[in-house]
Amino acid sequence: MKHFLRLEWQTLKEKNVLLKAVGYLLFYGVALFMIAGKQLRGLTFFPIVATISSLSSFTILFEDGKQMPMRRLLPSLPFSRRDIYRGRTLLKLMIWGSGVGLALLLSGLMHPVMDTWPTAATILIGSGISLFGLSLEHWSIQLPATAGIALRGGLLGGLLGLMIGTGGAIFNSLSRIDPQGFYFGLGAIVLAGLSLWLNQIVYLRRAL
C-alpha cells in the first residue's frame, strides 16, 4: 500500500496536475461567487465549497482520458488489486479531508463580510454530502473512460446546481428535522462507507 501511494503521488507530480488543480479551484471559486454570490451565505457556503473542492479536484487529478489506469496499467504492475483500490480510495479521502478543511478555513475567513461561518449541524451535513459525493464519484473506476467522465461531470454539476438552487431550503429543512445534523451526517457517512465497500467488492472480483 505504501509503495502504491508513493506511485500515485509521483504520478500526480509527473502529470503536473497539482498546481493545475489549485488554479482550477480558484477559477471555480471566483466563477461561483460571480454566479451565485447571494446564495453562498450561512447555510450553503461550507457544504458547497467542501463538495466542489473535492469533486473538482478529482476531475483534474484523476482524469486520464481514455487510458483507464485503474483497469489497465495499474493492475498489470506489481500491486495487488486490494492495494490499488485502497490506495486510490485513501488518496481521495485525503483530498476530501483537505477540501473540508479548506472549506472550513474559507468559511472563517469570509465570515466577517458574508456571514459564512457554519453551525456544527451544517458542518456535519456538508461533510456528509461531500463524502457521499466522493463515494459516488469513486464508481467511475468501474466505468468505461467516457462514462466515468460523464459521471464526474454530472455529479459535480448536479450537486452544485442542487445546492445553489435549493441548498438554503434543503439545509433549513434538514436542520429543523435534525437540529444537530448528527443523524443526517452519520447517515451520509454510513451510506458512503457502504458504497465504497461495495465498490471494492466489485473491483476485486471483476474482469478488468
Binding site: 509527473e14 502529470k15 486520464d64 482520458g65 487510458q67 489506469p69 489497465r72 498489470s76
Partner: peptide, 13 residues
C-alpha cells in the same frame, strides 16, 4: 514484463 496490444501508459507523460 507485460505489454498490452495498445498504449496503456499515461499519454500526457
Amino acid at each position: 514484463g507485460f505489454v498490452y496490444e495498445d498504449n496503456c501508459f499515461y499519454d500526457n507523460l
